[in-house]
Design a protein around this nucleic acid. Sequence first.
DNA 1: TTTTTTCATTTGTCTGACATTTGGGCTTGC
DNA 2: GCAAGCCCAAATGTCAGACAAATGAAAAAA
Lengths: 244, 244
Amino acid sequence: MKKSSENAADLSARIAGEIRDAIVAGRLIVDERLPSEAELANQFNVSRSTVREALKRLAAQSLIRTQRGATGGAFVNRLRFEDAYGQQITTSTLLLSMNEVSFDVACEARFAMERACAPLAAERRGPDHLARMRAEIARQQQPDLSDEAFCDSDVAFHRALVDAAGNPVLSYQLAGAVEGMLPLMNMITFTARSRENILRLHIEITDALERHDADAVTEALSALETYTLQLGQQVIVARSARNG
Amino acid sequence: MKKSSENAADLSARIAGEIRDAIVAGRLIVDERLPSEAELANQFNVSRSTVREALKRLAAQSLIRTQRGATGGAFVNRLRFEDAYGQQITTSTLLLSMNEVSFDVACEARFAMERACAPLAAERRGPDHLARMRAEIARQQQPDLSDEAFCDSDVAFHRALVDAAGNPVLSYQLAGAVEGMLPLMNMITFTARSRENILRLHIEITDALERHDADAVTEALSALETYTLQLGQQVIVARSARNG
DNA sequence: TTTTTTCATTTGTCTGACATTTGGGCTTGC
DNA sequence: GCAAGCCCAAATGTCAGACAAATGAAAAAA
């Protein structure tokens, strides 16, 4: 009747689960020091190695940090967005690359969420956001830019757009969606013609954002979705042709 | 110049990073067996304990699974949504509970993403989704329902709505947003009056979904956002009054 | 051929040891 | 009294070796 994750699992997994629950439930608060490894080993009646394996599991999730030395130990970590970002991106990338998710589905989700940012971004965008976006547009206009660099700039452009919404939770979620698609996007060959199309839409988005026109941003994003989907299809076709 | 995460860190963190990179980059494919712990210890020139700590880190992120016995070992895990869900929810919950994010911001992000699902859900909703939603509405009408059970039902209702969009990536992202807010929502006392308001909007959403009316769904969600924000404010006020 | 037994392999856990880091307290010198 | 430097205890990081337990495959028995 217990949680399946704590039932028949390893000792280190069970112990990690107990500590994790204590953190999530607030019984252990931020920056609080956990008992030393030796003490934990006593409390749980296991060896120090087992405790250490449990602590490493928690460290991998950024739930705790460890410090060496006399006043060292394991401390409950204040989870920061930067920490969460990395995991979010890794997870999203893997979900896509392991074919658990198709390009179409990922694309749809990404642009659906990006459109969700549009009204907020149109309202709150500052001059810095517009500057970031225009800087990326300038980069994307360089004809000698590699496909990979073009993708990176594309990601940076869209992150600026999302950041303009001024909601870190949305930025966090979108980071996974956008950067997770990067490996697949990198397989696309951006012809001069396709860059021109994308660039046109990027300019359209930025201009619309500047004049606080949420509807125009949404529309341009939808057009970009259609076009991205089309480019993605070409990769799928090329890939299956190579395999078949 | 290397990645900061692999520079001055522990051996076990470095080794975990190397293996993680290999998985993300596709040099290790799904279901592939890693060398045994003893072999890895040899390859990396460290002790078995250190290798084990590295493997536990990866296991905590669901990147590998281990199996005992003669043909056992560590295998690259096919990352499934169910695995990713749990981490996503844990992370979101912590980001909120540690006050890294305010209720308002979380609420805004949640409903922005939920509105992003509305057009897709209105188009694709099946009879099962409508049935799930109506079942939750029925539960929410029971006057003797506890506040906590009401919250659970609320979450279930919104998950059905999101699932109706038929996009697992959106479901995955929303799971974190919606369930992460649950602890804070649980602090709200749902009066008869507030339940009535919420219920009315839930019915409105479901009816609109049934007749494929995306605009009406969006509108009702916006109304629900306003109302949820209002209820949340009361909790904030009550909480600060208790502390001050 | 089918069943049983044996066995090698691998992970899980424990014990004990030493290295390294680090802050606090003590000593020393002024 | 005060500051600088030294020493040391405590804690994590790493290592080596051992045994327990699980497990599938090969060998042996029916």
